[in-house]
């Protein structure tokens, strides 16, 4: 029961961060800020969702698979963000200033 409540809470918190990340992606002014929103907020959201699902999983194998997926997504998003930022810099997009 407590576990269920905790898991639902974590899932909802994860959804909130995904929403925040998406809003950032759509509203932020330049590539670098958008990457920031996408990687930071979405990774935290994914982490919370995975944690919420781990609490609900019925055996350790499912939990292990979920954690593996989380690790892969984390590594992939870090790499992609690096590549996109690198390309943007080489193509001469200067960071936004107020």
């Amino acid at each position: 029961m407590i576990l269920d409540a905790l898991s639902v809470g974590l899932l909802l918190a994860g959804c909130f961060f995904f929403l925040a990340g998406t809003v950032g992606l759509l509203r932020f002014p330049d590539v670098y800020c958008r990457l920031h929103a996408l990687t930071k907020a979405d990774n935290l959201g994914l982490q919370l969702v995975v944690l919420g699902l781990v609490l609900r999983s019925d055996n350790p194998f499912t939990a292990g698979k979920l954690i593996l997926i989380w690790g892969l997504a984390l590594a992939a998003s870090a790499t992609i963000a690096h590549l996109v930022a690198n390309l943007a810099q080489r193509e001469g997009h200067s960071p936004w200033t107020r």
Binding site: A75, A76, T79, H82, L83, N86, L87, R90
Partner: peptide
């Protein structure tokens, strides 16, 4: 070339 940084190489090897 330059866009293939160390990070990408590390990621692919880990994958």
């Amino acid at each position: 070339g330059p866009e293939r940084g160390m990070l990408l190489g590390w990621f692919v090897r880990m994958l």
